[in-house]
């Protein structure tokens, strides 16, 4: 008998009374200023954010923060002037080992925990948000949601090979509970909250 059969049979031997799934509709839906809440939480977990009016302002901010500081890659065409634009399919992940800054877009941000949701299609390559020394993410201001429940309601049944919630820079506290930013992934995380002016 193969192990799959064996395991499923062992499970099936035990009968359990039916347990209904709970209703998730009563969870989430927090009111209030979600942008302020997101900014506060992100700061508390070691990230930072800038609210910027328009895409050009983002390019300007990138220049201001990282101008001339090593290899910059981006998936965003409007940032082609400040960094090397990368395209999915072209990327050999190991070759990104020296990326100083990666700038990509996130689909949603979550105020309660400072996380941003990035499906693979926005990453260029799965390794991009992890291998860079610094990560910057653009989020439209209207995409900041109160809770994880609100995020998953919008994510719905979206198809992706890989997707990730990222909340702040990579960190560890494995040595005597001392918080250190920059464990294996990015040392900093910056979120550009995009306010479209048009």
């Amino acid at each position: 008998m193969d192990s799959k059969r064996k395991i499923l049979d062992a499970i099936a031997r035990h009968k359990h009374p039916p347990v209904p799934l709970p209703d998730l509709d009563r969870l989430g839906f927090i009111s209030g200023d979600q942008v302020a809440a997101f900014t506060a939480t992100l700061t508390a977990i070691g990230g930072r954010s800038f609210q910027l009016g328009g895409k050009m302002a983002i390019a300007e901010k990138v220049r201001e923060l990282w101008g001339g500081r090593g290899r910059v890659i981006t998936t965003l065409d409007y940032l082609a002037d400040v960094g090397e634009q990368v395209f999915p399919g072209d990327i050999i992940p190991q070759r990104l080992h020296d990326v100083e800054l990666a700038i990509i877009e996130a689909r949603y941000a979550v105020a309660e925990n400072g996380a941003v949701w990035i499906p693979e299609v926005l990453m260029g390559h799965r390794i991009v948000p992890f291998i860079c020394q610094h990560l910057a993410v653009v989020v439209p201001i209207g995409a900041i949601l109160p809770t994880m429940h609100d995020a998953y309601r919008l994510i719905g049944s979206e198809q992706y090979g890989f997707a990730c919630f990222i909340a702040g820079p990579s960190k560890t506290a494995d040595i005597e509970q001392a918080l250190v930013l920059g464990a294996h992934g990015p040392r900093t995380m910056t979120v550009f909250i995009l306010v479209e002016t048009t």
Binding site: I45, M148, I166
Partner: peptide
């Protein structure tokens, strides 16, 4: 999938006192 909303809100808060772990990676292929 929507049940992740419940568990990811609880996991890190309970475990390390963070609002969520830095990375919640969804591998789908």
């Amino acid at each position: 999938r929507e049940h992740l909303g419940v568990f990811l809100r609880l996991l890190a808060r309970s475990g390390t006192g963070q609002p969520i772990t830095t990375y919640s990676s969804h591998f789908s292929g």
